[in-house]
Design a protein around this nucleic acid. Structure first.
Length: 160
DNA sequence: TGTGTGATTGTTATT
DNA sequence: AATAACAATCACACA
């Protein structure tokens, strides 16, 4: 019991020198509901996808091995729960086709879950983060070691 | 044909 | 300290 959340102090992250400038959107996630110009929304998310620094083509098909890209954020505990919850949800509600409904139901249940149940997913997420952290370190190391560090800071990843 | 969108919370990163 | 944004998934819609 009392499995305290293992909050380990992260590394100093002194590598912040590279300070890549994420194209953050001032508006944040609040997307103006403009039915007329849906393209605007696309533009917003488009930037997000831009971070992928890879051809948008088949972006959703990430199932493909992505070894040429830097490690992305690992799914959070909630996402792991969502993955599991989604399976059962589809069985009980085959009528539901959208993930939105599943997300709502999952989020609602997530709040009702106790720490003991959630800790299970937290544990997984924590472990994944550790691996992710290592992957990042390795990625950086490889980048510096393998490829010449980009002396000229490229403002944006021009596509690819 | 192909990609964007929507919704959930958590974690990370930047300011 | 606080805010911002992204992390995955799947069916649908639009150009």
């Amino acid at each position: 019991m009392a499995k305290k959340a293992t909050k380990k102090s992260q590394k100093s992250t002194s590598a912040s020198a590279s300070a890549s400038k994420p194209a953050r959107i001032a508006d944040g996630k609040m997307v103006f509901k403009i039915t007329s110009t849906e393209k605007m929304k696309k533009a917003v998310t488009n930037r997000s996808r831009l971070r992928s620094a890879k051809p948008i083509t088949t972006l959703k098909k990430k199932a493909m091995k992505i070894e040429a890209t830097k490690p992305k954020k690992p799914p959070t505990a909630f996402f792991y729960f969502l993955e599991d919850f989604r399976k059962g949800f589809q069985e009980q509600n085959p009528d539901v086709k959208s993930m939105r409904d599943v997300g709502k139901a999952c989020g609602e249940k997530w709040k009702t879950m106790t720490y003991e149940e959630k800790v299970h997913y937290y544990d997984i997420a924590t472990e994944k983060r550790a691996e992710f952290d290592r992957a990042v370190a390795d990625y950086i190391k490889r980048k510096e070691s393998g490829e010449d560090q980009e002396a000229g800071e490229s403002d944006f990843d021009e596509d690819y």
